[in-house]
Simulated assay, not measured.
Amino acid sequence: MKVAIGGPLKLGFRPWVEGLENVPAEGPAVLASNHLSFSDSFFLPAVLDRKVTFIAKAEYFTSPGVKGKLTAAFFKGVGQLPVDRSGGRGAGEAAIKSGIEVLERGELFGIYPEGTRSPDGRLYRGKPGGLARVALATGAPVLPVAMIDTEKIQPPGKVLPKLMRPGIRIGEPLDFSRYHGMEHDRFVLRAVTDEVMYEIMKLSGQEYVDEYATAAKRRMADAAKAGKEAEKKAEKAAAAAEKERSGA
């Protein structure tokens, strides 16, 4: 399945890649990437010779329609792991456990430290739970990854992708063995995550925002909702004023 989909992706979009030599030929490693588009989970595995396993949200395996079926087939075919993220802390622990198991098998584990796609193309603060904990628990090196221009290929809400060349930069491995056994120290988790995010920022050239992307999305959604409500009120006020003038 990876060959069947990865080949056409590389042929059709011709992604450029820098730093492939940093990916170990064998043994465990964490690929920590920025997250600009749904298609990130397609392009990164497509350019690697080794399988990379991501923790994918369960909705990707159960979405209806043709796109949903194709997405589920791809994720299943390349060995992605579905995790129900609606269960709060329990879901997070399940994802971390799954990531540790992948690394203990000597495989590549992919993760998006921001926790969700960037709402505006900027790089947001990394969540300290998953990335740092799996890296420290296993001793696996962390490779920072920058996806370039993938948000232009398939912006949120767009079904059909635009044919253009995305880019992928893979940085040199980061060794956090000095923190081994400290995966439950929140200050260490924060320090590890921030170091990785700094390297991703350097690779991607994105503007960094010291805010979680989930919080930014909520704020943007609230602002959009407030704007629509204000617009409706203005329309009602204008209609009422017009009715009053007509009655006069």
Results as ranks from 00 to 15, higher is better:
A132K: 00
P119A: 13
G99E: 04
G115Y: 05
G139F: 06
K243M: 05
Y124L: 08
K152V: 15
K69F: 07
G106Q: 05
E114Q: 14
K232M: 09
D49E: 12
P155N: 09
R186V: 11
D194Q: 14
M182A: 14
R117K: 07
I5D: 00
M1C: 10
F109W: 11
V3Y: 09
E207L: 08
A140T: 04
E151R: 15
A240T: 03
V142T: 02
L189T: 01
G92C: 06
A237G: 08
P141M: 07
L108R: 03
E18P: 07
F176Q: 02
S39H: 03
V142F: 00
P166A: 08
R85G: 05
G247V: 11
M182T: 00
V30K: 01
E93R: 10
L163A: 13
E183V: 00
P128W: 02
E101S: 06
K232R: 14
E107F: 01
P144F: 05
F109M: 12
A56K: 05
Y198N: 12
P156S: 10
M220I: 12
A248W: 01
P28E: 12
S246W: 09
G167N: 03
G121F: 04
P64S: 06
V145L: 04
D49L: 13
A215L: 13
L44Q: 01
R14N: 10
E18I: 09
A248G: 12
A230M: 07
F74K: 02
A72R: 06
P24W: 00
D185Y: 09
G205K: 08
A221M: 12
R85A: 05
E242L: 08
Y208P: 00
L81I: 12
F187K: 07
L20Y: 02
N34K: 02
A135E: 04
F187Y: 09
R89V: 10
E18N: 10
K10V: 07
K202F: 08
A73C: 04
K57W: 12
F43P: 02
Y212H: 11
V17H: 09
I153M: 15
D222A: 15
G115T: 10
V3N: 11
D194M: 11
A191Y: 01
A140C: 06
A135G: 07
E199S: 07
T193V: 06
R218E: 10
R186F: 02
A230Y: 13
Y124N: 02
L48V: 15
V66I: 15
E235F: 07
V17E: 07
S37R: 11
A32M: 03
E26P: 00
V196K: 03
Q80K: 05
G19K: 01
H180A: 15
A234H: 11
R125M: 13
V188P: 04
V47Q: 06
L131K: 01
T53C: 10
I153G: 03
R89E: 07
A137P: 03
L70D: 04
L81V: 11
K202Q: 13
A238C: 12
K162Q: 11
E21Q: 15
D194H: 15
M220L: 15
A221D: 07
S204C: 06
G99L: 05
R105D: 02
K233N: 10
N34C: 08
Y212V: 15
M164Y: 00
S39M: 14
